[in-house]
Design a protein around this nucleic acid. Structure first.
Lengths: 212, 212
DNA sequence: CTGTGTAAAGAACACCTGTTCTATGCCCAA
DNA sequence: TTGGGCATAGAACAGGTGTTCTTTACACAG
């Protein structure tokens, strides 16, 4: 199978993201706007190529009838396990295949699919203490996480500081051999730590604060 | 929560089957034909009912934008209207019977019933700007509110400061003839305002922060 | 009976959306 | 250079599609 052009890759991943975020397929003009393509005919042109190579299917003359063939049918994961507590000075519980089993989880929580957006390895942690106050996260808040070991610059993540034996929530920026941890509160100063002192535990998807 | 009519059950299971068989949601006229309904307006009528009860979601004026809340639409999720934006210096939109109509709301949101806990007059506001940063609420956060005009001491509420013409989110303590507004961040100092200068707009039920 | 609320029919409108047609520019082998 | 395949632009068309408006029918409480 021949390779795809950069534009076709872009279209494909846009469709994937669109379906994940909206729950229904994009129209041709959605794709046009989302991939900054100049004409609908160009989108159609590339969609026909993608279809002929089996990447997707379309029904003629039916709006939003794109189906991706890379098996992705979202079975709304709305039930996430609350696998533990995050607090300064404590290691956070590392998710395992065991804890993924939502039915077996000691504590669980229902969240709108709109929040998880089809992501796979989602779990929740309860925040203990006010040590994350500079990230606008308070005692008792619930943090929704995606289990990943690397994040992109600027993303909010759970960071484990090995030396300090401390977990914290910050925006992460990689700078040569050090890492800048930026509090969400702009009035506060960033923290710099050496690269080998940090371990990414997960990407923050959402914060939920409940008042009784 | 009231039961569904036989026709609504039929529509619901047709949508489910259609998505399963075609991979994309049906149009209103697909439903009309598939359920042998006489008019598109009847389909629309029943879809609005189904949406208001949390069984599905639609995006206004977007074709085939039906999403099913599969699995746990049994009381687990509820649909609340996002009726506006809260920002310093702006009056917040006062909820009316009009804006309660979830089906008519321009924007809406699905939240777990676990968050609303059976409360009735629940609506949502989007936070604009960082003026609530001392309440640990950031730009873009979504605040879930219960529409009340009085709160108890210590509750987090939307407070309208008449003189300053400013809405803010603080914990409220009534002290004789003045009101103490306590930021959630304990490092910051409280604000004192005269009693006649404040109007309670609603009690904060939850804060939801989403990262993309 | 009268009024009110719910449910439904049918039609019409305006916008959405897939499709198609023509024209243009580019690369590369003949 | 020439010609053909590839990719793109822009516009226009026809049918799809969500929405709304008016009218009708029915059940039920006052």
């Amino acid at each position: 199978m021949k390779g795809l052009s950069e534009k076709q890759e872009r279209i494909l991943s846009f469709i994937e993201r669109f379906i994940r975020e909206n729950g229904y397929p994009p129209s041709i003009r959605d794709i046009q706007a989302g991939c900054r393509i100049s004409s609908t005919s160009v989108v159609d042109y590339n969609l026909k190529i993608l279809e002929s190579r089996g990447y997707l299917q379309r029904s003629a003359e039916v709006s939003r009838s794109i189906r991706l063939n890379r098996g992705m049918h979202d079975d709304a994961m709305i039930n996430v396990p609350v696998i533990g507590v995050i607090a300064a000075g404590n290691p956070i519980p590392v998710p395992t295949a065991e804890t993924w089993d939502v039915t077996a989880a000691a504590e669980k929580m229902v969240v709108p699919r709109e929040l998880t957006r089809g992501r796979e390895a989602v779990y929740a942690l309860k925040v203990k203490g006010t040590s994350m106050i500079d990230a606008l996260i308070n005692d008792g808040d619930i943090v929704l996480l995606e289990h990943v070991s690397m994040v992109e610059n600027g993303e909010m993540a759970v960071v484990w500081l090995k030396d300090e034996k401390e977990a914290t929530l910050k925006r992460v920026y990689f700078e040569r051999d050090r890492v800048r941890l930026q509090p969400a509160n702009e009035q506060m100063q960033p923290i710099f730590v050496p690269l080998q002192n940090v371990a990414i535990q997960g990407r923050v998807i959402a914060v939920i604060r409940r008042f009784d």
